[in-house]
C-alpha cells in the first residue's frame, strides 16, 4: 500500500467479502441442500438454512444410494478416483523427470526430435482426438482396464518443461564435481538432482492430483464396466436419471464429497499449489 486511505481500504474489504460470498454461493447452497430431505427441496423454494437430514443423507450416499442409481458401491468409486489421481500423478512425475534429465544432461542423436515429439502432446488434448484414440485403445484390448484408463493420460509436456527449466538452473559445478568424484549419471540423478527437485515435485503433485481427480471424458469412454467407475462418473449418472425425479439432496451430498479432497489440498497446501500452478503454465 502506497498511501493510507481508510475509506478505500474499507471498500476493498467490502468488495472482496462480496466477491467471496458470490463465488462461494453455489457451494453453500450445495451444502445446505445436502442437509434437507428430497421432499423439502422439491416442494418449496430452496431453503437457505441447514435442515436436519445431514447425517441421513450422507449415510445414504455411503450405503444405499449407489445401488439405487445402478452404480457400484460408494467406497469403490471413491477408491477408483483416488487410485486414478495418485497413479496419474506418480506416473507423470516419473516419466517427466526422467525425460527432462535425458534432454538436459545428455547429448545424443534425435534429441531435438524427441523434444518436439514431447512438445506436440501440448497441442493434442484428448477431447480433440477422441475417436481415433478410443479406437487405438480398443484395438490394443485396453478398454475396461486400469492400463487403458491411466497410461494414455500419463504423458506430460508441461511437467517435462518444468523439470527441464529447473535442471537448467542447477549449477554446472554440481555435475562436474559429481563426475570428478566418479559418480555415474544415475547416481548423480538419484543423490543430487532428485533431492534438489523436492519442492518442484511437491508442487507438481498438488496440480497433477487435481488433474487426475477431475478426469471425466476419458474414463467415461474407456470403461463401461461399473467396477471402474469414478466419483465423477457416478455424479453424472445420479443427475441423468431416466425415470423419476433427481434426488437433489443426495446429488448435492455427493457433490460436496467429490470436491472435498482436491479443495482441501488446495486450501491446506496453498503455497505449493500456487507455485505448481504458476510455474507449470509458463
Amino acid at each position: 500500500m502506497v498511501e493510507n486511505r481508510p475509506f478505500l481500504t474499507f471498500l476493498t474489504h467490502a468488495f472482496l467479502l462480496c466477491g467471496f460470498v458470490v463465488v462461494a454461493f453455489p457451494v453453500y447452497v450445495a451444502i445446505i441442500a445436502s442437509t434437507h430431505d428430497a421432499q423439502t427441496l422439491m416442494s418449496t423454494t430452496m431453503p437457505l438454512l441447514p435442515g436436519s437430514h445431514f447425517i441421513e443423507n450422507y449415510r445414504t450416499i455411503f450405503t444405499s444410494a449407489s445401488a439405487a442409481n445402478g452404480l457400484p458401491a460408494y467406497p469403490l468409486m471413491a477408491m477408483n478416483s483416488m487410485i486414478m489421481a495418485i497413479v496419474i500423478t506418480i506416473g507423470k512425475i516419473v516419466i517427466s523427470i526422467l525425460s527432462a534429465f535425458a534432454i538436459v544432461y545428455f547429448r545424443f542423436r534425435f534429441r531435438q526430435l524427441a523434444f518436439w515429439i514431447i512438445f506436440i502432446t501440448l497441442m493434442l488434448p484428448v477431447e480433440v482426438r477422441i475417436m481415433p484414440t478410443y479406437k487405438i485403445v480398443a484395438d490394443l484390448g485396453m478398454l475396461n482396464s486400469w492400463a487403458g484408463l491411466i497410461i494414455p493420460l500419463v504423458a506430460s509436456a508441461t511437467a517435462t518443461f518444468l523439470f527441464r527449466q529447473f535442471f537448467m538452473t542447477v549449477p554446472e559445478e554440481m555435475m562436474e564435481a559429481a563426475r570428478v568424484d566418479g559418480a555415474g549419471p544415475m547416481k548423480f540423478f538419484k543423490d543430487i538432482l532428485l533431492p534438489l527437485s523436492r519442492t518442484n515435485i511437491a508442487a507438481l503433485c498438488v496440480i497433477l492430483f487435481i488433474y487426475g481427480w477431475v478426469q471425466y471424458l476419458w474414463p467415461m469412454l474407456v470403461t463401461t464396466d461399473p467396477s471402474y467407475y469414478t466419483l465423477m462418473m457416478g455424479m453424472k449418472r445420479m443427475v441423468a436419471v431416466q425415470d423419476g425425479e433427481v434426488q437433489w439432496n443426495l446429488v448435492m451430498a455427493a457433490s460436496v464429497l467429490a470436491m472435498l479432497p482436491p479443495v482441501a489440498i488446495v486450501i491446506f497446501m496453498q503455497r505449493l499449489f500456487i507455485r505448481g500452478l504458476t510455474e507449470t503454465e509458463k
Binding site: 472482496l16 466477491g19 467471496f20 463465488v23 462461494a24 453455489p26 457451494v27 447452497v29 450445495a30 441442500a33 487435481i210 481427480w213 477431475v214 471425466y216 465423477m232 455424479m235 453424472k236 443427475v239 437433489w248 446429488v251 448435492m252 457433490s255 467429490a258 470436491m259 482436491p262 479443495v263 489440498i265 488446495v266 486450501i267 496453498q270 499449489f273 500456487i274 500452478l277
Partner: peptide, 19 residues
Amino acid sequence: LLVWPYAVAPVVAGVLWFF
C-alpha cells in the same frame, strides 16, 4: 477464500450451477 474453485471438477461445477 478465492482460490479453491480451481479444484472443483468441471462436472461438479456444472451440476452445482445446474441445480
